[in-house]
Computed example of a mutant assay.
Amino acid sequence: MIYRFRVILDTEEDVFRDIEIEQDATLEQFHNVITQSFGFDGTEMASFYVSDEQWNQGEEISLFDMSDGSEPVRLMNETTLIDVVHEASPKLIYIYDFLSMWTFLVELAEIAEYENGMEYPNVMFIHGQIPDAAPDKEFKADESGSFDEGNDNEFLNLDEYDDLGFDENWN
């Protein structure tokens, strides 16, 4: 079977790609198609996250194993699309370049039959131009102390380092 995805850049402007790929392709193969279709060189760290209907970030599936070995990490090259995406769970979040935080919402739009003569993966449709820089993200603690986007709490101003409670000549 073929999975048809809409991959949307999380930005104010409409920027998305519609991609067809085999259901048994690895997430690493999908990562490569996404980066190429948006014009990235693919050399930065990236992860997929399983998501629920409200786009809450779940389990991470990483490009590389950066763990300390205490907990197993799912890797893109060992995980197929059909392992994590299906009609009951059609959404993923994809983060590319953790310094810039390019964030994409990935949704399974359709499951289709192979078309004879078609090569997969296939970028079916391109809409919008990617901006020069990743959209700004604000990560602020909510009332429970966990971090989330868009909360109205103030960040600590690091220019006011005198109030941080450490000796500035610590080294």
Rank of each mutant, 00 (worst) to 15 (best):
M1A: 14
Y3E: 02
Y3K: 05
F5V: 02
V7Y: 05
V7K: 00
E12L: 14
D14V: 09
V15R: 07
I19P: 02
I21Y: 08
I21R: 05
E22N: 14
Q23L: 06
D24T: 12
T26G: 08
E28N: 13
Q29E: 15
Q29F: 03
Q36V: 02
S37Y: 01
S37P: 05
D41Q: 10
T43F: 12
A46P: 06
A46T: 01
A46F: 04
F48A: 02
Y49P: 01
S51Y: 02
S51L: 04
S51R: 06
S51W: 03
D52H: 11
Q54T: 11
E59V: 07
E59D: 12
E59Y: 07
E60L: 13
S62I: 00
L63T: 01
F64Q: 13
D65A: 09
D65W: 09
S67H: 07
S70Y: 10
V73Q: 12
R74I: 00
L75I: 05
M76S: 07
N77P: 01
N77W: 13
E78A: 12
T79E: 03
T79L: 05
T79H: 08
D83G: 08
D83S: 11
V84Q: 03
V85R: 03
V85D: 01
V85H: 03
H86F: 10
H86E: 10
P90T: 02
K91V: 00
L92S: 04
I93N: 05
Y96G: 03
Y96W: 03
S100L: 10
W102S: 01
V106D: 01
V106P: 02
E107F: 08
A109V: 10
A109M: 15
E110D: 15
A112G: 00
E113T: 11
Y114S: 08
N116W: 04
M118H: 13
E119D: 14
E119Y: 12
E119F: 11
N122F: 13
V123M: 03
M124T: 07
H127M: 08
H127Q: 14
H127T: 03
G128A: 01
G128Q: 04
G128P: 05
Q129M: 12
P131E: 07
A133W: 12
P135H: 09
E138R: 14
F139K: 08
A141M: 12
D142Y: 06
E143K: 14
S144Y: 09
S144K: 12
G145C: 06
G145N: 11
E149Q: 14
G150Y: 07
E154F: 11
E154W: 09
F155T: 07
F155W: 15
L156Q: 11
L156T: 13
L158A: 12
L158P: 11
D159W: 09
E160V: 06
G165M: 06
G165Y: 05
F166I: 12
D167V: 04
E168M: 13
N169V: 00
N169I: 00
N169K: 13
N169H: 14
W170N: 07
